[in-house]
């Protein structure tokens, strides 16, 4: 079961001869934090067969953080009004461990404000009215969004002062432009997409790009998009 079912057709690395298998065998790890067991089970049902689901019911603070550390979830699903939100926030506000994409749900009607809150940068998504069918696509959207908004920012933050990393990315972009005939924007987008799909930092994607393009040398010169 693939974590992103995305096609590799437009992946410039594939065109350039890369045959990396997608990181597909590992199921999506989902942690549901909810003291309401029935509701948590509904979400679990919606994900059955598509994810490894862990339930965190009535655990708070330290054991909750321990569980997150051991499960290493790809996404956390929780109630907007959960008292555990500050514990989860502590993973984000102070970078003691990797932040996780968070799907937040609200039950009541008229949740426009909370939707807005979440869109304002909490990097999470709202499910109002939890139907099992809706759970999976929402999680995928949340993860994709998280990786753009948060993962990339986090990567950017780390690389901003790191000239070496920056040079690698610049060089890979230059190679893609030169060898694959991409515009600067396309080259960046291609690497960003790969970074998202593979869940890898932009820098290592750039290193792969350079390694592969160096390896195949000038043979692919005419095969640009």
């Amino acid at each position: 079961m693939k974590s992103t079912g995305a096609s590799d057709d437009r992946d410039p690395l594939r065109q350039a001869g890369e045959s990396r298998p997608a990181a597909a065998a590992v199921p999506l790890r989902v942690l549901i934090i909810d003291d309401d067991l029935d509701r948590a089970r509904q979400v679990e049902d919606g994900l059955s067969g598509h994810a490894a689901v862990h339930l965190a019911t009535s655990i708070h603070g330290r054991p909750l953080l321990d569980l997150i550390a051991s499960v290493q979830p790809d996404v956390i699903i929780m109630d907007c009004n959960s008292p555990d939100r500050d514990t989860i926030e502590s993973l984000r506000l102070v970078a003691q461990s990797n932040p996780k994409p968070i799907v937040m749900f609200v039950e009541e009607e008229g949740s426009d404000q909370m939707t807005a809150a979440i869109e304002a940068g909490v990097s999470a998504y709202v499910i109002d009215g939890l139907t099992p069918k809706r759970v999976r696509p929402l999680i995928q959207t949340a993860i994709a969004r998280f990786k753009v908004m948060d993962g990339l920012q986090s990567e950017l933050r780390k690389t901003r002062d790191d000239l070496a990393a920056r040079k690698v990315i610049e060089r890979a972009k230059g190679l893609l432009m030169q060898r694959q005939g991409m515009t600067e924007e396309q080259a960046f987008k291609a690497m960003r997409d790969m970074s998202q799909k593979q869940g890898k930092p932009l820098k290592s994607v750039a290193e792969n790009v350079i390694a592969i393009l160096d390896m195949i040398g000038d043979k692919q010169d005419t095969e640009g998009t």
């Binding site: 984000r92 506000l93 102070v94 970078a95 003691q96 932040p99 940068g121 990097s123 753009v148 948060d150 990339l152 920012q153 986090s154 990567e155 950017l156 933050r157 780390k158 901003r160 990315i169 600067e184 924007e185 960046f188 987008k189 960003r192 932009l202």
Partner: peptide, 15 residues
Amino acid sequence: SRLAPIDEVQSSELA
């Protein structure tokens, strides 16, 4: 630094 990487940074900055 224990700064969390969540301040607003435009992704276009990398482009």
